[in-house]
Amino acid sequence: MDSKTIVTWKNELENADILINLAGKSVDCRYNEKNKKEIYNSRINSTKALQKAINEFQNPPKIWLNASSATIYVHSETHLNTEKNGIIGDDFSMNICKSWEKEFFNTENQNIRKIALRTSIVLGKNGGAFPKFKQISQLGLGGRQGRGNQMMSWIHIDDFCEAVNFIIENENLKGAINITAPKPLSNKKMMKQLREKIKMPFGIPSPVWLLEIAAIFIKTETELMLKSRNVYPEILIENGFQFRYDDFEKSLEKL
């Protein structure tokens, strides 16, 4: 299926109980004009196509969970962003998230509960950020990145799946929800705990100028490493969700 044609989507989703849309080009790339356009279109077009398909359903899903990102909040080293008091800013990444959620919530369908998953860094063994953090630490490069003060909001992949299931089962939950562990920590502390876990006695720090050069060669953006995502899952906590991995050390034990 693609993000523009609704015929196959209709065939799959008519009479379905739940729709979970995680479509979107990875932001782990250089932010040139081509990639920016693909990042935007892959999110907006897929959401728009699904909405168009749902409008034609006789029996649409009762729950629609759409991906979003904790990157919607501004860089913050001290302010803890909840769904109620989170500060949303204005740059490429934040505007992508704002446009994504605007498209998602733009249409209100009766009897369809919509949730935007404002997800932080998901940590798992197979792909994503954790294997990369582990690899650079094993090479002795697992020191702080930049000043190391940037806050790292994260969630273990098992808790991510459980949080999605929790939201599905709790019919009072809707709107934008932070999907992140309750204890963000600084980049400096995160890298230190990781080094200790893999028994690496040192980690060479990476100053910003070095990260800028490295980002060009590995075709990514330093924002992914340097932006401070200081996010708290207030709605999940208030509604009784229990994290299995509520701090980074517990998560490391599993990972």
Score class of each variant (00 low, 15 high):
Pro61Gln: 04
Ser26Arg: 10
Leu117Glu: 00
Gly146Phe: 01
Met151Ser: 01
Ala176Val: 04
Asn187Trp: 08
Phe133Lys: 00
Thr222Phe: 10
Gly143Ile: 04
Ile218Pro: 03
Asn59Glu: 04
Gln150His: 04
Met200Thr: 13
Arg195Asp: 02
Ile96Asn: 00
Glu212Met: 11
Asn109Leu: 12
Ile112Asn: 00
Phe57Arg: 02
Leu210Arg: 01
Arg244Lys: 15
His75Asp: 15
Leu80Phe: 11
Asn149Arg: 10
Pro205Met: 08
Ser153Phe: 02
Ile115Met: 03
Trp9Gly: 00
Asn111Arg: 09
Ile157Gln: 05
Glu238Gly: 02
Thr47His: 11
Glu12Val: 13
Asn106Lys: 06
Leu194Asp: 04
Lys188Phe: 09
Asn149Glu: 07
Ile177Leu: 14
Asn85Gly: 09
Asn165Gly: 04
Ile179Ser: 00
Gly89Trp: 02
Asn239Tyr: 01
Asn41Lys: 09
Gly148Gln: 04
Ile179Tyr: 00
Val7Met: 04
Lys10Gln: 08
Ile115Val: 14
Arg30Lys: 13
Ile44Met: 11
Ala176Pro: 12
Gly240Cys: 12
Asn149Cys: 04
Ile216Ala: 06
Asn170Gly: 01
Thr82Ile: 12
Ser46Leu: 06
Asn59Arg: 13
Cys97Tyr: 01
Glu38His: 02
Asn239His: 12
Lys254Asn: 08
Ile168Ala: 06
Ile136Cys: 08
Lys132Thr: 06
Ser68Ala: 13
Glu56Arg: 15
Glu12Ile: 14
Lys114Ser: 09
Ile6Asn: 03
Lys219Ser: 14
Glu249Arg: 11
Asp159Cys: 10
Leu139Ile: 12
Val7Gln: 14
Asp159Phe: 02
Cys29Thr: 07
Ile204His: 03
Asn109Lys: 05
Asp246Leu: 09
Tyr31Glu: 05
Ser153Asn: 06
Lys84Asn: 15
Phe160Ile: 11
Lys25Arg: 09
Lys199Trp: 01
Met1Glu: 10
Arg118Val: 06
Asp158Val: 13
Tyr73Ala: 08
Ala116Lys: 00
Gly124Thr: 02
Ile96Ala: 01
Ser3Ile: 12
Tyr232Gly: 08
Val164Cys: 15
Asn172Val: 05
Phe104Met: 11
Lys227Asn: 15
Ile63Gly: 00
Glu103Cys: 07
Asn95His: 10
Val74Cys: 07
Ile235Trp: 01
Glu162Cys: 05
Arg144Thr: 04
Glu196Phe: 10
Leu22Pro: 14
Ala70Val: 13
Leu255Phe: 02
Ile6Cys: 04
Val208Met: 03
Lys219Phe: 15
Gln150Phe: 03
Pro184Thr: 09
Tyr73Val: 07
Lys174Arg: 14
Gln110Tyr: 09
Lys114Ala: 03
Asp90Val: 11
His79Ile: 10
Gln138Leu: 15
Ile87Trp: 03
Ile136Ser: 09
Met1Phe: 09
Ile213Arg: 12
Ile216Arg: 10
Asn66Gly: 02
Asn172Gly: 06
Met1Ala: 07
Ile198Gln: 11
Leu13Cys: 15
